[in-house]
Design a protein around this nucleic acid. Structure first.
Lengths: 262, 262
DNA sequence: AAGTGGTCTAGACCACGAC
DNA sequence: TCGTGGTCTAGACCACTTA
């Protein structure tokens, strides 16, 4: 019913909107979000200008005002729009160029793509190793228990920007290591080969001198320092899934966050 | 009406809840959030356990299920609870010790307090200076125009952890610089002395070698590197308000983010 | 089958800003 | 005063998990 309302008006929109509502069965709210993001991207709603009111949008798109509001709230948190009580909702141009919206800090591919670059993953090493003391502690294992180590290089437009090091307990794997596709998103690796879903991630950000090995791999001659992203992945059941240590070349890629007030 | 429902049951709750609902006129959702956060904090809801269902909570607290849901959604984004369709909502113990919940990265005081330390601010310098080229660019001014510079040291339990450097155009100030209280939150400084409200902040995170001056001030003998937080403050009208350059001693204070999936 | 969270609606009232 | 976003309600239906 809701989907239908959007489809009826699909001639007003970009054709892809129409396709998506057939191919995927996205929620109404997600469809509305797509429409609004697209209108901001293609300047149907001009930067700095006021967009239609909540009631107008809910009439036009054939959804309730509550649904429109959940979408607008999400866009406001991401800083894409600015809402003013008693006045209206405005497009925020300044924010569109920003890379990480905090929600996707751990999704390195999206982070690179949000920077405006083409992301690719180059697997360097997939092999067994024994758990270090620290790894064992986070993963709730004994030191020395077997892990699978993923050493991968993330490229932005062919330029190396992040050296990622992730380890997963060997016991999670349902397939031989040889069958693993090292170019998949880490989330996909855990899903396909371990049948595990990521529930949440805790990331610690540190500054450090770049080790020689890291500098060589990142081809970073100028900068002496790198950002270290220490990540711990957990399932929705609070079970530790993986530990990540990522070396981030902040001279090649911006790590920026938007924080909207209230 | 809603407030009244909570007040009626205030004998079940911590006394402060009752007071708050009188002193401040918080929204119903905020009051519900306070109650739930308190119950998680004081282990009324045990870590790892399931909390009452949405319907039970809405009955008990006398609010609609929708209101309960908006609160639970917020807590889930912060990682404090984990929601499972068809099952229930669970308390996530792992996340409670984490410092920055992305939303308050620019609020350095809250960041320190979330780390479990007592925060204090020590003003080092408040004075006029001319805008550098870069500062002028962000603030949409001409190079050399007068700024007010705030150099301040943030302490966690008396230990220096962040050296903050903020500049604001002099033209914003309605009072002589001598009257400024350098221990206020930066948000308060802009509010009280400039009548400006922060709409959003864009923060770039970089890694850098610590300059000698910075190391001396931070009393950081061991670590050679610091995190640099480059911040740009804007009003809700998209007007640039201030530029910040903060040196963050990541060996003394964790900068960690939680990201919950979906 | 029962109970949970996920989604959406229609309508109400309020607080605020601009005119 | 009017229109905007802010808040909240009551109730509906769906998808999912568990038993």
């Amino acid at each position: 019913m809701l989907k239908f309302s959007i489809m009826k008006r699909s001639d007003d929109c970009h054709p892809t909107i129409f396709l998506m509502s057939i191919i995927q069965t996205k929620s109404v709210a997600d469809q509305v979000e797509e429409v609004l993001r697209e209108r901001i991207r293609n300047a149907t709603y001009l930067a700095g200008n006021r967009i239609p009111s909540e009631s107008e949008l809910s009439d036009e798109l054939g959804v309730s005002r509550a649904t429109v509001r959940t979408v607008l709230a999400k866009l406001a948190v991401n800083g894409l729009i600015i809402r003013k009580q008693g006045d209206g909702t405005y497009v925020n141009a300044r924010v569109q160029e920003v890379s990480a919206h905090a929600g996707n800090l751990w999704d390195l591919v999206r982070l690179i793509e949000n920077n405006g670059s083409k992301a690719s993953i180059q697997p360097l090493l997939i092999s067994e190793k024994a758990a270090s003391e620290k790894e064992a502690q986070v993963l709730a294992l004994e030191t020395g228990e077997p892990l699978v180590q993923f050493k991968r290089l993330f490229l932005a437009d062919q330029r190396p920007v992040i050296l990622a090091n992730n380890v997963v307990p060997l016991s999670f794997f349902r397939v031989p290591l040889e069958q693993i596709d090292g170019q998949l998103h880490f989330r996909e690796i855990l899903h396909q080969y371990c049948h595990q879903e990521i529930g949440f991630v805790i990331t610690d950000i540190h500054s450090a001198l770049a080790a020689d090995e890291v500098r060589q791999v990142l081809k970073n001659q100028s900068a002496l320092t790198v950002l270290e992203l220490h990540m711990a992945f957990y399932s929705r059941n609070n079970q530790p899934l993986a530990v990540g240590l990522n070396y981030f070349d902040d001279s090649a890629l911006r790590l920026s966050l938007v924080q909207a007030w209230s």
